[in-house]
Structure formats: C-alpha cells, structure tokens
Amino acid sequence: MTTTPEAPAPDLPFSVFARACPSRTTLEHVTGRWGGLTLGALYEGSLRFNELRRRVDGVSEKMLSQTLHALERDGLILREAQPTNPPRVDYELTPLGRQVAEHLLALIHLVEGHMDEVMTARARYDETRGGR
C-alpha cells in the first residue's frame, strides 16, 4: 500500500504554489544546497561557524554567512553570541528548525540509499542520449 502526501487544507493562509506566497522564499532557503546541508549538520547539535563550515564541505564563508542569516530570519536557527574574548558564536536549531531538519534528513537518507539506482539510471541515460 502506498501513501501520498495529503493535500493542504483549503483554508491554510499560505501555499508555496501561489506566486506571491512568502512560504516560497522559506522553502528556497530550506531546500537550497547550502540551507539543507546546514540544517542537516546542525541536527547533530550546536556548532560554531568554522565547525559548521568544515562539516558542510565546499561552502564558502560568504555563502555560509548568507545561509545562516536567512535561516535565522526564518526562525529555523538560533545564533548565540557568547561575551568572551575572542567572541564565540554558536548556531543551533530552533524547535521548528529541528522538525524541518528531520524531514530533510529523511530525504537525504532516501537519496543516499538509492544512489546505486541513480548512477545506473544516469549511465543508461548517457549511453542512449550521448550525455556526459
């Protein structure tokens, strides 16, 4: 038996399918490469900026900073500056951020678990269409 996600209730005030809905921006922050990886990395616990940068391999300092600002603005992460010398800043998920990260990690694990199938499909596609 397969299940499908339920359609949103018609009385919800937000719909990502509506052009002007602000939920589209949040969805973009969450599902973009760096947002999803940042949320996934923070699921394990709070991290400092450089720890997070090492965990999310390949993200530039500028992109991580922009990503953290967007996720903080959306209420998905907390930024806590410690009054120490040198300054220490920790990032952690909010309860909402934790819920979002759980769903993202389920998707990440699903994709990772089926990469053999994906690689086979890519090879078959490339053979028949002269792809990369």
Rank of each mutant, 00 (worst) to 15 (best):
G36N: 06
T31F: 15
G131A: 00
P86S: 08
G97K: 12
D126W: 08
E127K: 00
S60P: 07
R73N: 12
D11E: 14
P8V: 05
A20D: 05
G36M: 05
P83D: 14
L107D: 05
V118M: 11
D57V: 03
G45T: 01
P95Q: 07
A70Q: 07
A101G: 13
F14P: 09
L104G: 15
E80G: 11
A101P: 13
F49Y: 03
T4N: 03
L110Q: 14
G75A: 03
M119E: 07
R132H: 03
L105V: 14
L47N: 02
L78C: 08
A123R: 14
V30A: 06
A18R: 11
R129L: 06
T2C: 04
M119W: 11
R33G: 09
E44S: 14
L42E: 09
R73I: 09
I108H: 12
E80T: 15
D126V: 10
F14Q: 09
V100H: 10
T94F: 14
L107K: 05
L71P: 02
T120D: 15
S15R: 09
R48K: 08
R88G: 04
A70L: 05
S15I: 06
T3Y: 02
P10L: 08
H114M: 04
V56C: 02
L110M: 12
D74H: 03
E72Y: 04
S46W: 04
A121G: 06
Y91S: 05
E117S: 13
R124Y: 11
E61Q: 01
G97L: 11
E80V: 14
L71R: 04
F49G: 00
E61D: 02
